[in-house]
């Protein structure tokens, strides 16, 4: 159910997410303590390539990592196999990515 390629993709995205999660938490705490309003936050993220790259990478990594993890669960606990399992993984990954990308776009460029 997991071959080497999926396994490595999941490990690499985990490595990517580790610093991003820490960065995300740090920014959240900073924003709350500094008492930044939503408007002020948007003022800093809008048009920022840096924030787009940060959260864009995050959303993509989450989509890949989550879809592969849920694939294992769907196989071992729900009994999905073969094509159905692949379809489930792609659907999960694409939906996660669509939701993440929509949010990233909204705070950076929309």
């Amino acid at each position: 159910m997991l071959n080497l390629r999926l396994y490595m993709l999941q490990r690499v995205t985990a490595l990517l997410m580790a610093p991003l999660v820490l960065g995300h938490l740090a920014v959240m705490i900073y924003a709350v303590q500094g008492g930044l309003s939503a408007g002020e936050i948007l003022g800093r993220t809008q048009g920022s390539i840096l924030w787009f790259a940060f959260y864009g990478t995050f959303a993509a990594a989450v989509a890949v990592h989550g879809a592969i993890g849920l694939r294992s669960i769907a196989c071992e606990w729900v009994g999905l196999r073969g094509r159905a399992l692949d379809a489930f993984m792609w659907l999960t990954g694409l939906s996660l990515f669509a939701m993440g990308a929509r949010a990233v776009w909204a705070v950076t460029f929309a």
């Binding site: 159910m1 997991l2 071959n3 080497l4 999926l6 396994y7 294992s72």
Partner: peptide
């Protein structure tokens, strides 16, 4: 051991 039934499961 790298295939779908391999060690990575």
């Amino acid at each position: 051991v790298s295939d779908k039934g391999g060690c990575h499961n």
